[in-house]
């Protein structure tokens, strides 16, 4: 199976290349782009951008697996990431993770059978003053309660 950026993606990639003095610096932005275009970072996508940047695929894999935001496996349409660090825990994050688990019928790390939701526990999201917090895809939802979680998730198409 081979992959390739869309025309827009390709254009964005070219723009990135021009922004940095060394092409390896494009690896992180390129992996963000891969994830935006394909939903996750597949082996094929790694080989693809390794080719575009003329680096070894292992080098891209080393980078992709170092950073937590790159999903090396497919995730649900909505990636629900709940902070479990201290400020959020003091404000009830454990309880809310339990709530999410029951609501979605999955444990953290799992994806619903319909592929709609993946639930993850993550480390500090830098939103400690508005804890507890979760990120659904790119968007932050702060000062969470069971009710606000229900409202957010139930409102997703």
């Amino acid at each position: 199976m081979s992959v390739a950026f869309s025309d827009a993606g390709r254009k964005e990639f070219e723009r990135l290349l021009a922004r940095y003095p060394e092409k390896e610096a494009v690896i992180l932005p390129a992996l963000h782009l891969v994830q935006k275009e394909f939903g996750y970072v597949s082996d094929e996508a790694i080989v693809y951008i390794a080719g575009l940047l003329s680096v070894a695929p292992a080098q891209i894999e080393g980078v992709a697996t170092f950073y937590t935001m790159y999903n090396r496996k497919p995730v649900g349409k909505y990636h629900v990431q709940v902070c479990r660090n201290l400020s959020c825990s003091l404000m009830g994050a454990e309880h809310l993770i339990g709530h999410l688990s029951r609501k979605l019928g999955i444990e953290p790390g799992e994806t619903t059978p319909d592929g709609k939701f993946t639930l993850s526990e993550v480390e500090c999201l830098g939103s400690c003053g508005t804890a507890p917090v979760m990120q659904v895809n790119d968007e932050y939802h702060e000062n969470l309660t069971e009710e606000s979680i229900d409202a957010v998730l139930d409102g997703l198409p």
Partner: peptide, 11 residues
């Protein structure tokens, strides 16, 4: 790269 738990000022 603000990431120290408890820290959210730069954001």
């Amino acid at each position: 790269d603000e990431g120290e738990p408890g820290t959210f000022k730069d954001r």
